Amino acid sequence: MAGDQKAKGKKEQAKGKAKEVVGRAVGNERMEAEGRMGQSKGDARQAKEKAKDTFKH
């Protein structure tokens, strides 16, 4: 389960980064902001899973 969540966090980060880059390339500020938000969401998921791992051990 935790591995699935970690992978999901990485996927969200990658999708967010891609969306941010595309938004910047085409000059779409909204898409760029959505990309940054996706990266933040992925970062938060990763941090949550790391914290859960820390308290397990």
Rank of each mutant, 00 (worst) to 15 (best):
A25L: 09
A2N: 12
N28G: 09
A18D: 06
A25Y: 01
G38V: 00
Q13H: 06
F55K: 14
Q5T: 06
K41N: 14
G23F: 07
E32D: 11
A2E: 11
Q13G: 03
A33Y: 09
K10W: 03
Q46W: 01
K48I: 06
K52M: 12
K41Y: 09
K19W: 00
H57F: 15
G35E: 00
E32G: 08
G42R: 00
R45C: 05
A14K: 07
G3C: 03
V22F: 05
Q13F: 05
T54N: 11
A7V: 04
G16K: 00
E29F: 03
K50W: 10
K52R: 12
A51G: 10
A51H: 12
Q39M: 09
A2K: 05
A44N: 14
E20W: 07
K41S: 11
K10H: 07
G38M: 00
K48N: 06
E34M: 10
K48R: 13
A33G: 08
G16N: 00
R30F: 14
Q39F: 03
K50R: 14
A18M: 03
A25N: 09
A51K: 14
E20R: 15
A51Y: 10
E49D: 13
G38W: 00
K48A: 13
G42V: 01
E34A: 09
S40E: 12
K15Q: 04
D4M: 07
A14D: 05
G16T: 01
K56M: 11
M31Y: 07
K19Y: 01
Q39V: 10
T54G: 08
Q13W: 03
E49T: 13
K17V: 00
K48G: 06
H57K: 15
K19Q: 12
E12Q: 12
M37C: 01
K50I: 11
G3H: 05
A2F: 06
F55R: 14
G42L: 02
N28F: 13
K50Q: 11
D43P: 01
A44K: 15
V21S: 12
A2T: 09
K41E: 14
Q5H: 12
D4P: 02
A7M: 10
Q39I: 06
M31S: 11
E49Q: 13
G27W: 07
A7R: 09
V26H: 10
A51T: 12
R24E: 14
Q13L: 07
A2C: 05
G9I: 02
V21R: 13
E34W: 06
F55D: 10
V21A: 14
E49G: 05
R24P: 02
G9N: 04
K17H: 04
S40W: 06
K56R: 15
G27E: 06
K11P: 00
G9H: 02
E29I: 07
E12C: 01
V22D: 05
K48T: 10
R30G: 12
K15A: 02
K17G: 00
G35S: 02
N28I: 10
K8P: 02
Q5C: 07
